[in-house]
Design a protein around this nucleic acid. Structure first.
Lengths: 204, 204
DNA sequence: ATACCCAGCTTGACAGTGTCAAGCAATGGA
DNA sequence: TCCATTGCTTGACACTGTCAAGCTGGGTAT
């Protein structure tokens, strides 16, 4: 059998290639059209042969899925960090999560776009959806801590917050709305958007 | 020179092929992964050779762009029809537009998704963006007719309405939120969403 | 009427892609 | 020392978008 008991295996020489492939894919996603994200281009960037990726990612969808799963993990980490360094007020925490969400999306727009497309979530054996659910869980808990008006239950609150923030960044990323003139228009608009949400997440 | 004076040309035998290619592309978009939308598959469906599409659409992006431009035209038409058959109240008209928008997106989810991706809007010499702007204009005028609270100017109103509805359908299409249990949950949720928008578009 | 042109489509080719199959090299355990 | 497994390579296949040529038939010009 000789099954290495999880000890020495990946330590001796870490899978440079796997990491290099992931980084190549991540950079290709942000730097060109989706059609340019090819396994062979990733392999060239990583300095390996055209068939090497198959050893780590059975198919193209699996490589892309791995990048997108990492994206969701990164997003969740940012949301948690923002939440934990915000004030104790539940809506302030929710707002901090929203701003972190927007910052992530605008920092990696192409990745964000792909993360939210069902067709890109097929590979990686469901890991993408698991990571996405983890993100949703962070939002869910933050919403659950707010006190909302009658008729806005947890699910409705999550849906409303998520659709507003996602709709905003999605339209901005794809150039269909702008926040108006000014360099920091996006942040101003994001702040205003979250303020507009306030009535649904506060009960006075 | 012999430049036909725009009269007889496309009448004699209408461009069946062009229409067939557009329809093939539209059906491929809705019936499979994006990678399956190939010029050659469209050509096979239309019963022409693999290079025939080049005569109507210089590149693949142009064919897809043409389908998406038609999508925006269709969407605008549905929005206008819904608006004109709604009650005279400005918010009722806005809500009718929103419901038509959601219905369109859910009836052609893959097309809708592609319409809102910047990378798919390169071809067709800007026709996609023109059609998208036309859609935005319909929304803009509907918003302008509402009476809103202080601080919600036209632009903010348009952004708020659009991001809410787009965010909702985008998340639903891609399976990240659901409207809760029940067959008509999506419509119920859509209705609730538009009601939640109401405070931003009414001044009592 | 005859020559001609050209729009509309065809066949053929090329580089590039994802994926599969086979093979090589080295590392580590028996 | 032998051997098996891991990690990667080369090679091949079908498929893709795009370009270059060639064919064909209906219209115009002479």
């Amino acid at each position: 059998m000789a099954m290495t008991p999880q000890s020495t295996g990946p330590r001796a020489r870490p899978d440079d290639v796997r990491a290099a492939l992931l980084q190549a894919a991540a950079s290709l996603i942000e730097s060109g059209p989706e059609s340019a994200i090819s396994l062979r281009a990733c392999a060239r960037m990583a300095g390996v042969s055209h068939a090497a990726p198959a050893h780590y990612f059975p198919t193209r969808a699996d490589l892309i899925g791995a990048v997108l799963a990492e994206g969701f993990d990164d997003l969740a980490a940012r949301m948690i960090a923002a939440r934990d360094s915000a004030q104790a007020d539940p809506f302030a925490r929710l707002k901090a999560i929203g701003m972190a969400y927007i910052a992530f999306a605008l920092s990696r727009p192409a990745t964000y776009d792909m993360m939210f497309q069902r067709s890109n979530r097929d590979g990686a054996q469901g890991r993408v959806m698991t990571a996405a659910d983890h993100c949703g869980g962070v939002l869910w808990r933050a919403v659950a801590e707010t006190r909302r008006p009658e008729g806005v239950d947890d699910r409705t609150g999550v849906n409303f917050a998520w659709m507003a923030v996602h709709g905003y960044v999605s339209l901005v990323i794809n150039g269909l709305i702008d926040g108006g003139p000014g360099a920091d228009a996006i942040e101003v608009m994001a702040d205003r958007l979250l303020s507009l949400l306030e009535p649904a997440f506060k009960r006075e």
